[in-house]
């Protein structure tokens, strides 16, 4: 009776839409498990032996991606309590840390994962450099990687302001003051004054939404931190992973023949 019911259930369209192939341990089914899954299909169907060698890749790219996922999830959770206005931001941060169950855990995970991600991105870059994996045909992916490094640093910097404490305000004051000296775009940079740039119409103003760090800055950094920069980063990550596969899978030692 039960087996009959089960077999009947397995014939339904709903079941067959979710489980699209059998699960006997065959080469074909193993490949289908990856290929039929939208999340796994970016991952290569077959993995070369050297790719599992941690001593070669350090796993840094993968760890960076894992940290990005951790940051996305904890970040969304933090957004439930955080209001990006000068009046509430600091108190909401305090509220999270003192009165919200698991609030400190979420905030500290976000914070430490952010620190770790900057580190792992750099180590990933270092590994790619040491193993010469930036060389043709992977030179374009190196450039994409550099863009992702910059985006990681920008995410880190914009998140720095959000606690809205003294450290945040002054660190961002110092950081954005560098934008004053941007050539052609900053009002204290080369050719800036000659082009008629002032504190209220140069590139620093675009960042701050004012002539100094204030409530509009908090809002701009918040939107940039939560929406704009992650969106751009995801787009470049897709290209990054896609390029790894198109350029012959994860790089490995030169054996003089194809890796697969």
């Amino acid at each position: 009776m039960l087996t009959q019911l089960r077999d009947q259930f397995r014939k339904t369209d709903v079941y067959k839409s979710i489980f699209r192939h059998s699960y006997q341990d065959t080469q074909r089914n193993r490949a289908l498990q990856i290929v039929d899954n939208v999340f796994l299909h970016l991952h290569p169907v077959r993995v070369p032996r050297h790719a599992t060698n941690l001593g070669y890749t350090w796993g840094m790219g993968g760890i960076t991606f894992l940290l990005f996922i951790v940051l996305t999830i904890t970040g969304v959770i933090l957004m439930f309590y955080y209001r990006p206005t000068a009046q509430y931001a600091y108190e909401d941060m305090k509220y999270l840390m003192n009165d919200v169950p698991f609030g400190p855990l979420m905030r500290n995970m976000h914070r430490w994962a952010a620190h770790a991600m900057v580190l792992t991105v750099m180590l990933h870059m270092f590994r790619v450099f040491l193993t010469g994996s930036y060389k043709p045909p992977r030179q374009f992916n190196w450039v994409v990687g550099v863009i992702l490094l910059v985006l990681t640093l920008l995410l880190s910097f914009s998140g720095y302001l959000l606690p809205w404490d003294q450290l945040a305000i002054w660190a961002v004051t110092v950081g954005t003051n560098m934008a004053r000296a941007t050539p052609l775009l900053g009002h204290e940079g080369p050719f800036g004054p000659e082009l008629g740039l002032r504190a209220d119409n140069d590139v620093r103003f675009v960042l701050l939404g004012g002539t100094e760090v204030g409530p509009p800055t908090l809002l701009r950094f918040y939107v940039g931190h939560c929406i704009f920069l992650p969106l751009i980063a995801v787009i470049f990550m897709v290209v990054h992973f896609w390029r790894v596969r198109k350029d012959g899978g994860i790089s490995g030692p030169d054996t003089g023949k194809k890796n697969f």
Partner: peptide
Amino acid sequence: ALRYMFPRVLFE
């Protein structure tokens, strides 16, 4: 979009 980043009034 660029002009949008420069409001006409600042509360400073």
